[in-house]
């Protein structure tokens, strides 16, 4: 005969089941097991009177519980993927005839308190009551959901309306700009595409001062600026293309005045100022910029020519000799 294995004590009993069920350890363990299971069942039984239906939450409502009598895991709540009936699965399991049979067997096998048995089984009329309360709860839940949806829709509608109003106030044309007598017109308030006739401008301004209709002002409320025309010159670059800045290019009417011999008072003052500047950080921008340096067309450094053969100094000397003899070589290479 195989020895008896007690599922509550989780050990093999070599004496016999009949003796084992009276053991103190077994009774204690059985009590604690039934106490813990009883708490869960009591929580589920509360739902018979007042069932609760909530929104389905996969983390919350896919829990399972262990039925000690049937020795299996059972879904605790029932759900259709949308709403969940709290403890629905547990109550349905407790109502099943298989479960009540298993409870009878368990009670017999472990010699549990007979009074407690009724607690772990659900009768037919209890289950009917539960079903009716579930239908009631479901109706209530749908009503509240409808109300919530209506409320949210109202909020969305309100926000939409306020946005439309804001848009309308912005788009409404403001006061017409006063002025124009200084020959400068601001065009930001002109609707795009409107043609400004010459009779419109009161002032004797040149026509190119009238601004183009395509200019767009990103900042709302900024004062309109005067547009003075696109500065596009294809032959000369500008600051974006890294062209030669105007202050580096020579003046057309540069007349050099003859200097007096010897240092002047201005030179002395300048020298004194330069001495004072030695205290400033040496790596600041333009620290050794010569403010009086004349700038000519040849401001780019010249390193002679490509060094092909011979020694470096030979080619350099040759270049220097050629440049010295021919003189105006650089000038000839310039475009007219």
């Amino acid at each position: 005969m195989a020895p008896y294995e007690c599922s509550v004590c989780r050990r093999t009993v070599f004496s016999s089941r009949k003796k084992h069920v009276y053991e103190k350890g077994h009774r204690q363990r059985l009590e604690s097991v039934l106490g813990a299971f009883g708490e869960k069942v009591a929580a589920a039984r509360k739902m018979i009177k007042a069932a609760s239906v909530v929104k389905f939450d996969p983390r919350e409502h896919e829990q399972k519980f262990w039925c000690h009598c049937c020795q299996e895991e059972v879904q605790r709540h029932t759900s259709d993927g949308n709403v969940a009936v709290v403890f629905g699965g547990m109550l349905a399991h407790l109502y099943r005839p298989e479960h009540s049979k298993a409870v009878d067997k368990y009670w017999w096998a472990h010699h549990a308190e007979a009074k407690l048995k009724a607690r772990f089984v659900i009768t037919q009329d209890e289950y009917e009551r539960f079903k009716s309360s579930v239908t009631k709860a479901l109706e209530n839940y749908e009503e509240t959901e409808d109300a919530l949806i209506k409320q949210v829709a109202g909020q969305i509608r309100e926000a939409e309306q306020s946005r439309m109003e804001m848009l309308r106030t912005i788009l409404e044309p403001g006061a017409p700009p006063a002025g124009g007598d200084d020959g400068v017109r601001s065009s930001s308030q002109q609707p795009p595409g409107r043609i400004i006739s010459p009779a419109d401008s009161e002032g004797p301004g040149p026509s190119n001062r009238q601004t183009l209709p395509h200019e767009a002002f990103v900042m709302a409320g900024a004062p309109p600026l005067t547009f003075i025309g696109q500065q596009v010159a294809s032959d000369k670059g500008n600051v974006h293309t890294g062209a030669l800045p105007p202050w580096m290019s020579p003046d057309e009417d540069d007349a050099g005045d003859p200097q007096d011999i010897g240092p002047s008072i201005e030179d002395f003052l300048k020298h004194k100022e330069k001495m004072a500047l030695k205290k400033l950080p040496p790596n600041r921008v333009g620290a050794n910029f010569d403010h009086s340096a004349p700038t000519d067309e040849g401001w780019l450094p010249s390193f002679g020519r490509v060094w092909n053969s011979g020694r470096r100094w030979q080619s350099r000397h040759q270049y220097k000799k050629e440049a010295g003899t021919k003189g105006g070589k650089r000038k000839r290479m310039e475009p007219p």
Binding site: L225, T226, F227, Q231, A233, K236, V239, H240, A243, S249
Partner: peptide
Amino acid sequence: VPVYRQYFDITYI
């Protein structure tokens, strides 16, 4: 100073 106006691409004043 049209040179500077062109160099700095001054379109708005």
